[in-house]
């Protein structure tokens, strides 16, 4: 277990059915309409900021590699390519309509980061693992660290083989 290094674990939560009641963005005044634009901005309720509030669906809370958490920067880029019509500015990564979508996303991410394996771990599973964990031997390289423990106890995603990935991903984007 201590030698398992080339993997990702995605910790996600489900925040309920997707509700499409987020207010539509108002159309902005033409950029050369300066006289009216100030008035416009002072009167409206800034709905574009409310997109920062999570709506339904599955959300990735954190992605872990063997050395710790992954910064979301690259992950957001991939999310943006996969779902160009969805906003990717929230604190968590999402929304994903289903676990299948998360799996496709993780496959893309693994491809980009040259990771061989990936697993999905729900927040419920994560919390149960933490509650049952009594020790963590972080100073002993022969013992599993947290990422390795999570990987071993959660559902591994079946990633397409390397040679097949380009074809599948090519179809996704075209």
């Amino acid at each position: 277990m201590g030698s398992l290094n080339n993997f990702l674990v995605s910790i996600y939560h489900f925040s309920g059915p997707i509700i499409s009641t987020a207010p539509a963005l108002p159309s902005l005044p033409p950029s050369n309409d300066l006289e009216n634009s100030a008035d416009f901005f002072s009167k409206r309720d800034e709905p574009y900021l409310e997109n920062l509030v999570e709506s339904g669906g599955h959300w990735i809370v954190a992605i872990l590699g063997s050395k710790g958490h992954l910064d979301f920067e690259q992950a957001r880029e991939i999310y943006g390519e996969l779902f160009p019509n969805r906003s990717a500015k929230e604190k968590h990564l999402g929304a994903f309509d289903s676990l299948d979508e998360i799996e496709i996303f993780m496959a893309l991410l693994c491809d980009k980061l040259q990771m061989e394996r990936a697993a999905l771990c729900s927040v419920v599973e994560y919390n149960a693992i933490i509650e049952n964990l009594t020790t963590l031997e972080i100073n002993d390289p022969s013992r599993p660290n947290l990422a390795q423990i999570l990987f071993s106890k959660t559902r591994e995603i079946k990633l397409p083989e390397n040679s097949k990935r380009k074809g599948i991903f090519g179809k996704l984007f075209h």
Partner: peptide, 9 residues
């Protein structure tokens, strides 16, 4: 998450 994987940032 980092420290439990042996890393200090």
């Amino acid at each position: 998450l980092d420290r439990a994987c042996g890393n200090n940032n």
